[in-house]
């Protein structure tokens, strides 16, 4: 279950371009860490390096270490497929599999892990995941209808149910509410607060109020200048970052002076 993350001197490259420079941070288990910063500062890239999704872009690579409970994700004998099955991800736009039913969407990850299990056990996991995602009551009577028929907010909670069905160690969220209305957003934020009890959550957001509401720790990413790599300016207790940031750039950003 929930594990800690230690990142040391991480540099992320796309081919020869350095995209994110020298990130070092530690994330406690069962906490919510929000990453904020202006567009293009590398927070999403950094997030995707935590489950090796950025490698899908040809010639992307990293230097440095990402340790999850002491295990280096980039050690030569580590298979990215295994990494991704232990570190769940929720994307900016809801992306349930359109050709699958709600039930099959939630069960997809379990079927992938090739665990043969009795139907009743799978039913239980699907129900538990949907309940954890606060979606069960809304879909219980139409589990075998396509997931694309749900509203945007429901689809995003379905994606969260899909991600937590395999009981990952860590849950990564890449601007999970940016395509949702305020009410759906609030439901997701409440959900994040509940999921914190079981998972280590890292969330990228453009919404500073959201970061302030949901996170325990906030990290601020910024660019040194145009064409320069992104870097982590500071990271700390959310209350401190929003009330008394130690860096001028952080203060300017959270007070809305730029970005």
């Amino acid at each position: 279950m929930a594990k800690r993350i230690d990142v040391a001197d991480l540099n992320i490259y796309y081919d020869k371009t350095l995209a994110v420079q020298d990130v070092s941070l530690s994330i406690e288990p069962r906490s919510v860490t929000a990453l904020i910063g202006p567009s293009g500062c590398g927070k999403s890239t950094f997030l995707r390096s935590l489950n090796r999704m950025h490698e899908l872009i040809p010639r992307a690579r990293v230097e440095g270490k990402v340790m999850v409970d002491g295990q280096d994700l980039y050690a030569p004998d580590v298979d990215p497929v295994t990494v991704r099955s232990h570190i769940g991800m929720v994307f900016q736009r809801p992306n349930p599999f359109p050709t699958m039913s709600i039930y099959d969407n939630v069960a997809a990850g379990i079927k992938l892990n090739a665990k043969r299990m009795p139907k009743s056990e799978l039913d239980d996991i699907v129900e538990r995941s949907l309940r954890q995602a606060n979606l069960w009551d809304e879909v219980a009577d139409r589990l075998h209808k396509p997931g694309s028929g749900l509203s945007g907010g429901q689809q995003q909670r379905l994606c969260i149910a899909r991600a937590i069905a395999v009981q990952p160690d860590i849950l990564l969220m890449d601007e999970p509410c940016s395509a949702l209305d305020p009410i759906s957003t609030q439901k997701i934020e409440d959900l994040i607060g509940e999921l914190k009890a079981d998972y280590t959550i890292v969330i990228v957001t453009h919404n500073m109020q959201q970061a302030a509401r949901v996170s325990d720790v906030t990290g601020f990413f910024n660019l040194r200048g145009v064409g320069q790599p992104g870097h982590l300016v500071e990271i700390g207790d959310t209350a401190t970052i929003f009330s008394a940031p130690s860096n001028k750039a952080t203060e300017d950003y959270i007070s809305g002076r730029f970005g």
Partner: peptide, 18 residues
């Protein structure tokens, strides 16, 4: 095929063929 759906599958721990 939407990139979004391919990424959803990969992020769940699917191999390329899966």
């Amino acid at each position: 095929t939407p990139r979004l759906h391919e990424e959803a599958a990969l992020a769940l721990g699917a191999t390329h063929w899966e």
